[in-house]
Write a protein that binds this DNA or RNA. Structure first.
Lengths: 347, 347
DNA sequence: TTGTAAGCGTTATCAC
DNA sequence: GTGATAACGCTTACAA
């Protein structure tokens, strides 16, 4: 009989998946659950001796508080959500790392969600995060996103990154896209290119703003664009568009792209069209990448301060969490032009 | 007085961030919370008329169940964790997308966590996911990870990807690294390269297995490696190692790298050493990337079936969740050699 | 077919 | 300083 009981106990110890709870700790330490909670929260005077005993029980039992229960009770959590539109875009993974670092330093963890530019997925994930009681969300909205029509409006702290939305009632961290695109276009023109084609993302405001800077520069030089296309911010669509552009008799002598995936597509198209970069056609874009300096010629880009964007957004989010009624702030950062071989004809 | 009360009510309606709960719905529909729960779960016979009323109340109040409370009550959730060691590595973002797609199709959502090859962060995130009651975790462990020493052993369903661990008691989805590396080395030798340097990752078993295949092939041809280095799977360390290798008088004529970040470093080093690829030195690696065909010459690689790895791992995880006691399964997938210019001397 | 009530593991408000 | 105890929002026996 004794053996049987031992067996049962061992069995339970090994296979019972239930966690040790605050009750177990309380029992082991001979105190109430309230005391255990207070020791752990360190927010009330406790007799040193009692604290000792509780702490010992905690470590003996390998106790860790159940975050779900805590979250239910206090109605918040120490997680934040990061909702990005394309996890394959190095820009967003760079942001992701920065957000994670900053969050981590503040004792928060990050749940990263990928919407694939799909408004349904976007809504699904925002609802999920809301339901999960996250402390707040950092995200890059699709164009279809309408903050005021959403249930989570007013309830969950938000910081918008990369793409602006209409509401002036939200914190945002953005790039000065118009200026950046303007500078990039000026650079092309200064280097003797005249027939500029613009490829912009169709999934966000970013593309529109960049096209504004593009047109502004052209106008100032009395040039008109050789072509303008708003397409999906991915490799394949950019490749196809550029193939068709470069196949024309009166083809452009420069291609302005709006993100690194489109830049890759443009490079592929130039190669497959047997055109020399930068002699036959210049290619410039946004975001510095691993391969930007590996290709020949290396790519001229506007580098975005991804680390700063991610960090600033996270800090802004924490400020809003602490002080929900502070007035919304929009931080606009500058990109920096890195001129490389893909836009320098030489002499 | 009446105005004041109206004001208070309106105020509460607008600014009270608490969600509408099952109680509100029950009250609105004139039923008990149990009935509401049953209607929503659809797991008990309900009078059609009652169901109508409940559903109406749900949509009127815009009610959504609190996942935290549900999770606390039923002791599980419909989230899975994905713990990767480097979110900047395109291999892992590709896996991430596949995992997310498969999970999504099964009604689960994915929380992605980045450990940065840091065992502390790894443990932190695994504990977090455990505490968050995730249904299971897919992850690529650091070398230091010791499954049996962990508190969450036996309790949370696991699927290991990319890197094997000692325990034979876990589901895994791996690449046949030895064979892949062997084929890649054979390819180099068949193309006339004789002084092969091997650069392997020092953060995982993957590097060790790939070095095994590398050595096996060399041995069969009575060659000895020109150099062997186990280094961090990032660009900079690979760059530095290759710079030093390629600066030697008796430099290698081929560099075998173990992941795409190391490959990028090797390419940079060849360029900065003013060496021609593939004439002076061949460069080969693992994982096909955006830039693999963009550089000149394009890179010879072993392509991993990332989509299949992610999907298989997720399916395996769901099977284990449903049936915790099924016997563990290890799925080993094959890589495929894509021979490109970086290892083909020409004639 | 529906309601009552217990309980998931916390924290917070009382008392003492 | 500490202990009962009532929530948090949900699911699920058990009753009716």
């Amino acid at each position: 009989m004794h053996t049987l009981w031992s067996f049962v106990i061992v069995f339970i110890k090994c296979y019972n998946p239930s966690m040790t709870s605050i009750k177990d700790v309380a029992k082991a330490a001979g105190v109430s659950t309230a005391t255990v909670s207070r020791v752990l929260a360190n927010n009330a005077p406790i007799k040193p001796e009692t604290r000792e005993r509780v702490l010992k029980a905690v470590s003996d039992l390998n106790y860790r508080p159940n975050l779900i229960a805590r979250s239910l009770r206090i109605q918040k959590s120490t997680k934040i959500g990061l909702v990005v539109s394309d996890i394959r875009n190095p820009f967003f993974t760079a942001i992701g790392r920065a957000v994670e670092d900053t969050a981590h330093q503040n004792g928060y963890s990050v749940l990263m969600c990928n919407t694939d530019e799909d408004p349904d997925k976007e809504e699904m994930y925002l609802k999920l995060l809301y339901d999960e009681n996250v402390a707040g969300v950092i995200f890059s909205p699709t164009q279809q996103f309408n903050i005021s029509s959403q249930t989570y409006d007013q309830k969950m702290p938000f910081v918008i990154i990369d793409r602006s939305i209409d509401s002036k009632n939200v914190d945002m961290v953005l790039l000065d896209n118009v200026t950046a695109a303007y500078e990039l276009t000026e650079h092309l023109i200064a280097n003797g290119y005249k027939k500029l084609a613009g490829i912009f993302g169709d999934a966000s405001t970013t593309g529109q703003e960049r096209s504004k800077g593009f047109h502004k520069s052209l106008k100032e030089h009395d040039l008109s664009p050789a072509a303008v296309h708003f397409i999906a911010p991915r490799i394949q669509p950019a490749y196809e568009t550029c193939m068709s552009l470069l196949g024309q008799p009166n083809r452009p002598d420069a291609i302005f792209t709006s993100n690194s995936l489109q830049t890759a597509g443009a490079y592929q198209a130039a190669r497959d069209s047997k055109l020399k970069v930068p002699q036959d056609v210049a290619i410039v874009g946004f975001d510095d990448t691993i391969w930007g300096t590996l290709v020949d010629p290396p790519v001229t880009v506007i580098e975005q301060p991804t680390e700063e964007i991610g960090r600033t957004a996270t800090e802004l989010l924490f400020k809003r969490i602490q002080e929900p009624d502070r007035s919304p702030k929009t931080v606009i950062l500058k990109g920096s032009l890195i001129a490389r071989g893909s836009s320098l004809k030489g002499e």
